Structure formats: structure tokens, C-alpha cells
Amino acid sequence: MDVFMKGLSKAKEGVVAAAEKTKQGVAEAAGKTKEGVLYVGSKTKEGVVHGVATVAEKTKEQVTNVGGAVVTGVTAVAQKTVEGAGSIAAATGFVKKDQLGKNEEGAPQEGILEDMPVDPDNEAYEMPSEEGYQDYEPEA
């Protein structure tokens, strides 16, 4: 019985440690998101679009440190934060509304985080759909 109880105690310690790591990862992701939003706020009209992409990228980098179902929630929060940063930029006159959601080359930025393969159960990952990809044929 002692062996059984000791095993359960060790398992509990492992769960607590994993929860603490997840909590730490979420806190880091939130900190990076805040950094990115402050970065966007300090940019001029020309830099705002690039700044919004930076927020998304920093958040995406930190999301990889967070495991399990938390990833889905962090990704949703990050996307809403990026959308909010863009709205703030438009409201303050840093950028025109028609410039939001495009990178410096004018290509749409939507789907940055949505296409990231995420499995809350950590069982399997699927690649994003290939609808947006084109076949590449090298020139002879």
C-alpha cells in the first residue's frame, strides 16, 4: 500500500510541476504579447503594419512553449490582441483601416495563427491545408 501511495504522490508532483510550467509559459506569452502591443503603439504610420505582424510573430513563438489545451486559448487571445492593436492603430490615425491585415508588401496577414497546427491532446499534428499553395516548377 505504501508503494501505491508513494507512486500516487510522485504522479501528483509531476502534474503540479507540469501545471506550473504551463502557467509560466502562458505568463511569458502574455508578456511578449504586451511587449508587441507597446511596440505597435510606438510606431509611426509606416511601421504600424509591420508592428502588428511582430506582435503576432512574438506571440506565436511563445505559444510553442505552452502545451496542451492552453495553446488553443493563448492563440485565440493573441489573435484578438493583434486585431485590437490594429483597431487602436486605425482609431489613433497611425494607419488607414484599409491597410490593416496586410503586410508591407500588401499581402493579407489573416491566418497567421489560424494555420498553425495545434492539437490540445498532444496526440497528432496535421499540416495546414494546401489550398493556398501553388506547385513550383523550376525553369529549365
Results as ranks from 00 to 15, higher is better:
Q79Y: 12
V82P: 02
P117G: 12
V77I: 14
Y125Q: 13
Q99D: 10
T75F: 15
E104I: 06
K23N: 01
V37P: 00
T75Q: 14
E83W: 11
P128W: 08
E137F: 11
E137Q: 06
V40D: 00
M5Q: 00
E20A: 09
A53D: 02
E61Q: 08
V66E: 01
D135G: 06
V15F: 02
E114R: 10
V70I: 12
V16N: 06
P108I: 04
P120R: 12
E137G: 07
A78H: 04
V40W: 02
E83T: 08
E28M: 08
G93M: 03
K34A: 10
A107F: 04
M127D: 05
I88V: 04
A17S: 06
Q24E: 06
G101Q: 12
S129Q: 07
A53F: 12
A89E: 03
S9L: 08
M127G: 04
E13L: 02
G111M: 15
K96I: 03
G106L: 04
A91D: 04
G7T: 13
N103E: 06
G67I: 11
S129T: 08
K43Y: 14
G31I: 04
V40L: 14
S87R: 03
D119G: 09
T59M: 03
A78T: 08
E83R: 07
Y39P: 00
Q134C: 12
T64D: 04
A56T: 12
A29T: 06
P128G: 06
S42H: 08
Q79P: 01
A91T: 05
G132P: 04
P120W: 05
F94W: 15
T44E: 00
D119E: 07
E57A: 08
K45F: 14
A91H: 12
T75S: 08
E46S: 13
K45S: 07
T64R: 11
D115E: 12
D2I: 03
P138M: 06
N122C: 04
L100R: 11
A91P: 04
G14P: 01
A85I: 13
T59Q: 01
K32D: 00
G14F: 15
G73D: 02
T81E: 02
S87A: 13
A29F: 15
K10M: 10
Q99K: 02
A76Y: 15
G25N: 04
A124S: 09
A17R: 10
V3P: 00
V70E: 01
V49M: 13
E83Y: 03
L38W: 06
H50G: 06
T75W: 15
T64E: 09
T22Q: 00
G132Y: 09
L38Q: 07
V52G: 01
G86Q: 12
T22E: 00
Y39L: 11
V66S: 02
T81V: 15
M1E: 00
D2W: 02
G51L: 09
A78Q: 03
I112A: 04
V66Y: 11
K102L: 10
T81L: 11
M127L: 11
G41S: 10
K32Q: 03
V63G: 02
V26C: 11
M5W: 05
E139I: 11
K12A: 11
A19G: 02
D135R: 09
A29R: 02
E46V: 07
V16P: 00
Q62K: 07
A30F: 15
E13Q: 06
I88Y: 14
V74A: 08
T92M: 05
G67A: 10
V49Y: 13
V70H: 01
Q109F: 10
K58A: 13
G41Q: 06
A17V: 09
K60E: 01
G31F: 15
A78D: 01
A124D: 14
K6I: 08
S9P: 00
V63Y: 11
T72V: 07
G106I: 12
D121L: 08
A69D: 03
V63I: 12
V3T: 00
N65P: 02
S87W: 14
Y133S: 03
V66L: 10
P138S: 09
E20Y: 13
P120L: 08
V118T: 03
E131F: 10
G14M: 15
E13M: 12
V16E: 05
V3R: 15
M127H: 07
Y125N: 11
T75A: 15
S129A: 05
T54R: 15
A140Y: 05
A89Q: 04
H50E: 06
A53R: 07
L113I: 12
G86I: 15
Q62M: 07
K80M: 09
A76V: 10
D135Q: 09
E20F: 14
D135S: 04
V52N: 01
A69S: 05
D119W: 03
T92C: 14
S87Q: 15
V70M: 05
V71L: 10
G25P: 00
A29S: 02
E28C: 07
T64G: 06
V70D: 01
V15K: 00
A29G: 02
E13I: 04
I88E: 02
E131W: 05
Q62N: 09
E61I: 06
L100D: 09
T59G: 05
K34N: 01
Q109S: 10
N122R: 13
P117M: 07
A107Y: 05
K12E: 00
H50T: 08
V15L: 11
S42E: 13
A107S: 10
Y39K: 07
A107P: 06
P108F: 07
A76S: 07
Q109Y: 10
K58R: 12
E131K: 09
K6G: 01
V66G: 02
I88W: 14
E126P: 11
D98W: 13
I88D: 04
N65A: 06
G41A: 09
E35F: 14
E20G: 02
V63A: 04
Q24A: 09
K80F: 14
M1K: 00
A90K: 08
M5A: 02
E123P: 09
V48T: 02
S42Y: 13
E126A: 14
E35L: 12
Q24R: 13
K23C: 14
K34S: 01
V48C: 05
K43Q: 03
E61W: 12
Q24P: 00
E35C: 11
D135V: 08
G67Q: 13
V37N: 00
G106V: 05
H50Q: 14
Y125S: 07
I88F: 03
E61K: 09
G51Q: 08
D121G: 12
A17T: 10
G14K: 12
E20M: 09
Q62W: 06
A107E: 06
I112R: 07
G47T: 15
G86N: 12
T75C: 10
E139S: 11
E137Y: 07
L113M: 05
E139D: 11
E139F: 14
Y125T: 10
A140D: 09
E130H: 09
A27Q: 14
F4D: 00
A19N: 01
T64N: 12
T64P: 02
V48R: 01
T44W: 15
V71E: 02
D135P: 04
K6T: 03
K80S: 06
L100H: 03
G47H: 13
G31C: 01
P138Y: 12
E123K: 11
K21V: 10
Q79R: 09
A78S: 03
M1L: 00
H50M: 14
K21P: 00
T44D: 00
G36I: 15
A29Q: 02
A11K: 00
K58H: 09
G47S: 15
A30V: 13
A140C: 11
G68P: 05
E83V: 11
E126V: 11
V71I: 14
T44C: 12
G93K: 05
G93C: 03
K21E: 00
K80H: 08
T72D: 10
V37G: 01
A78R: 07
K32G: 01
Q79D: 03
E57K: 09
V77R: 03
D119K: 02
V15N: 00
E123V: 10
V77P: 01
A78K: 05
G36W: 13
G86R: 08
G47Y: 09
V40E: 00
G41W: 08
F94P: 03
E137D: 06
S9G: 14
A124N: 05
Q109M: 04
H50K: 11
E114I: 12
S129C: 07
